[in-house]
């Protein structure tokens, strides 16, 4: 048996995901039953029982959402920890790219969190309305989410089962390191342009939120995903590491950097998720979702503040900005 599956942290992680899956399986069964029997206009006892069962699905989803919300950083942290015993890996970046499952797994986890958030939003408006108008929509969404979660569970297992601690890995510096003569930034931007864009899109998101222009907000969000990500990777991150050529999204999650990566990426993805959910609520459900939008603004503001802070802090300390040096990185 692969010894990594016996690693305490991984075992706890897999056990947690498995228990959640079992509970969600119950919810899934109930959900199918409800989809079949649901008839809001009926006066039967069955219908009243079914309406109560819908609350069971709700609590199970809230519970799973909260736990998965904790399990995602735990997952990253676990990878950080096993990078100690995997040769060549110095942070999660090496571990996650060990096999084909790592990145897929990470993305499916994000997608599930987003979809669960959307489900909770729909459910919120659904039970506040008088005739459960989105009952079927949310039930089918849950069917889809459950399928994703089942895939996720399998990948969880496959990912860790497949890691061979005797194989030497590449780590972040080789994965993300600047390739000679190749511009890694998207859309052929240079560093100054991407930073200007970063703040411009942030301003655009804020102003379209308060100006109630959802489509502009949506465009802002879609742009902010790559721009925000690459700005951190190639600019703000280097100030966190105080190393001009260290481009890694994962190392900042480590203790050496005071775990700053967790609030940083948390507020970034949190903002994106909240924004998408809020736009869906307003455009599809025609419901006012000020609260979600304010939370989004708060989230992005935290994100931008953290990013800016590290640059200013470095400048305050050293009186200069970081200049990337062209050196050949050995590792």
């Amino acid at each position: 048996m692969n010894s990594l599956l016996l690693n305490t942290d991984i075992a706890i992680f897999l056990l947690g995901e498995f228990i959640l899956w079992v509970v969600l399986l119950i919810a899934f069964g109930v959900n199918l039953y409800l989809l079949k029997k649901w008839d809001f206009h009926s006066y039967t006892n069955l219908q009243y029982r079914i309406e109560k069962l819908a609350y069971l699905i709700m609590v199970i989803i809230i519970f799973s959402f909260l736990m998965k919300f904790i399990l995602l950083p735990y997952f990253v942290f676990t990878m950080d920890k096993i990078s100690d015993i995997v040769p060549g890996a110095m942070c999660s970046a090496g571990v996650i790219s060990f096999n084909a499952y790592g990145m897929k797994l990470f993305f499916i986890k994000m997608a599930i969190l987003l979809l669960l958030m959307i489900w909770l939003m729909i459910n919120h408006y659904d039970i506040e309305a008088k005739v459960y108008p989105w009952f079927r929509a949310k039930s089918w969404l849950f069917v889809f989410i459950f399928i994703l979660i089942t895939i996720e569970l399998y990948w969880d297992y496959a990912f860790f089962a497949d890691i061979d601690i005797h194989k030497v890995l590449n780590c972040c510096s080789t994965l993300y390191g600047l390739l000679e003569g190749v511009n890694p930034l998207p859309f052929g931007l240079d560093k100054r342009e991407i930073i200007i864009l970063f703040y411009m899109i942030y301003a655009m998101i804020i102003s379209s939120t308060f100006g109630k222009q959802n489509y502009i907000l949506l465009i802002g969000l879609i742009l902010f995903i790559p721009i925000g990500y690459y700005s951190v990777l190639y600019f703000f991150g280097t100030y966190i590491y105080e190393m001009p050529n260290h481009n890694c999204p994962f190392c900042m999650l480590q203790k050496d950097y005071y775990y700053i990566g967790y609030p940083l990426w948390g507020s970034f993805f949190g903002g994106v998720f909240l924004g998408i959910t809020a736009i869906l609520a307003e455009e599809r459900l025609k419901k006012d979702s000020k609260r979600l939008k304010y939370l989004m603004v708060l989230s992005f503001t935290i994100f931008v503040t953290i990013c800016t802070f590290f640059v200013l802090h470095y400048y305050y300390k050293n009186g200069v900005f970081l200049e990337p040096v062209k050196v050949e990185m050995v590792m």
Partner: peptide, 26 residues
């Protein structure tokens, strides 16, 4: 003792706990 260890304990206990009481509580 780090946050990670504490959250390991928390997850290992809280997930089964809540999972087993969720239906009776509902």
């Amino acid at each position: 003792i780090d946050i990670f260890l504490l959250s390991s304990i928390f997850l290992l206990y809280a997930i089964p706990f809540i999972a087993s009481v969720i239906i009776p509580v509902w």
